[in-house]
Design a protein around this nucleic acid. Structure first.
Lengths: 302, 302
DNA sequence: TGTGGTGGTGGAGCTGCGACATCTCCGGTC
DNA sequence: GACCGGAGATGTCGCAGCTCCACCACCACA
């Protein structure tokens, strides 16, 4: 039966064209190498080397085998390496997607920690995505881990880990009377347009935000934007106010103030999701994300 | 060190998902299979099977390995098969050269037979070459097998196999008085130009043909042409007559008749040559050429 | 709580691989 | 042409490691 041992020896032998030198490189004795080649020739039924005591030359069959054996051994090595990384969960590629409101706080912290603690893990990070889109990409296998705020549609074909609940804060233009207050009552904002994430099934933030406003007796004119960054920029431009999770405070812009809401706190949950039975890397990175978010979530602002 | 044995076992195990059944299929005992899997997991550093006494399931690493191992084993099998064909002389590339007078009869028959009986052999055929040129190409390694008519210069650094002796026939213009005769005496052609192959060391036919003419008392005006095809075309054009081996009759042109010579037959030998200690394919194709020429040489004309 | 079936483990035996010594062949040299 | 040295082949032996057998541990099911 042909074994990789035969192929490994043959490749070196074909390279050296000399049994003695090849044996040294293989850390075996020359007679053993002769035996292996003989076995290989018996197994394959082809003469692989034209050899005399003076000269070792590849036959046509030998040339064919040299190429094939090299490919096979490369495939084995590559597979072995891949499996090692997979098994240790210390390397491999992980694709992470973040919802907009986690893009400016969680994302950079996670990236930093992974680079520090799992330097061989190749992170592919995408921010400013929307919850339903993230879940769809997870299910499609286009993403390994998603960090988002769950709507009603989180089914149990995904493993979901609750990271933390973040209180909503108001995003106000810097020149608003309440911009420097310790807290703001939503009713003080009556009449201002509300900048929100998209409606429909696209964002889980908008229904939450609208509900909060309605309960405070507000029915603001709504301006929808695609990204959290844009939302804050709009507020900075004086186009209205917004309601965002606390951690968006990491996104500091001139002309913008983040002010806690007075009264009973309203929170937006942040979760992490991945497919069930994840690869060790995915599990490891997930754990790191959880550690990052629980450890230093609240004091992320400056 | 990972060996193919491990991969073969793993593929079956991944297929059966049952150590006992897999061991039976592999013709080894179950504990041996457990050992192999353990080794494989140690080598790769990854857990490949989630297993209890009730259930054997592939991990993600296992799924990766199953695919890779199958590819690797397939590549090994394919290579082994290819080498077997090469070794048995049933595959490979053979470059065949034919002298002009064997181009129109032997060449097509050989090509046909090889395609039928050795479909994996890649044949590279060149016709209308001259004997000395063929031998030079053989020695240079530019050709594997040559079929030609030997001159004096066939040395013993080539293995030569006599294929057959062919009687010379006259090639006459269709309107010649003897064109429809059963035989022609050379003296009837006195005064006609003789179309021949090249002189000097280039062709072994010309000296033979001139000798035949001289012994018949002819001293014809000689017109030299490079190829046998051209020779026959010249005859068809009424430019003279020729003397060619019987098998050239396979080249039928309007306005040309092949007529046997009366009197004692004169033959031109046809031989096959290759380098000593040839690759199996070369030997096998050589045998096929010999079979073709000895079996159906004479009745090749229509 | 027994029972059957499953994968894991420990020890004995044997296969087969590799090391060593030796042989044979061949080319170069004088 | 006899000698010499280097190269691959061969014969023998020791031992690593694989396989097998017997047994263990575990779990589902009755």
């Amino acid at each position: 039966m042909v074994e990789l041992r035969h192929l490994r020896s043959f490749v070196v032998l074909a390279d050296e064209r000399h049994f003695g030198r090849a044996a040294v490189r293989l850390h075996i004795a020359q007679p053993a190498l002769s035996q292996q080649l003989k076995q290989l020739e018996r197994e394959t039924g082809a003469r692989l080397l034209d050899r005399s005591t003076r000269r070792v030359e590849l036959t046509e069959a030998g040339r064919l085998l040299r190429g094939r054996a090299a490919e096979i051994l490369a495939a084995v090595d590559r597979t072995s390496a891949d499996l090692g990384l997979l098994g240790a969960g210390r390397a491999g590629r992980v694709r992470l997607g973040f919802v907009g409101t986690a893009t400016y706080d969680v994302l950079p912290h996670v990236t930093r920690r992974v680079r520090d603690e799992l330097p061989d893990v190749e992170l592919e990070v995408r921010g400013e995505l929307l919850g339903p889109e993230l879940m769809a990409q997870l299910r499609e296998g286009d993403l390994d881990i998603a960090v988002f705020r769950p709507g009603a549609a989180v089914t149990d074909d995904l493993e979901v880990l609750r990271l933390r609940d973040e209180p909503l804060v108001a995003v106000l233009p810097g020149d608003h009377p309440s911009a420097r207050a310790d807290a703001v009552d939503l009713r003080e904002l009556d009449g201002m347009p509300l900048i929100t994430h998209p409606s429909g099934y696209h964002s889980t933030m908008q229904p939450l935000v609208l509900d909060v406003c309605r309960r405070a007796g507000l029915d603001p004119h709504v301006v929808e934007v695609g990204e959290t960054g844009t939302l804050v920029v709009f507020v900075a431009a004086g186009l209205g106010f917004g309601l965002v999770p606390h951690s968006v405070r990491a996104l500091r812009l001139d002309g913008v103030a983040y002010v806690p809401l007075s009264g009973e706190p309203v929170t937006a949950p942040l979760v992490l999701a991945h497919r069930p039975d994840p690869a060790p890397v995915v599990a490891r990175v997930s754990a790191l994300v959880a550690a990052v978010t629980s450890g230093s979530g609240r004091d992320a602002s400056g």
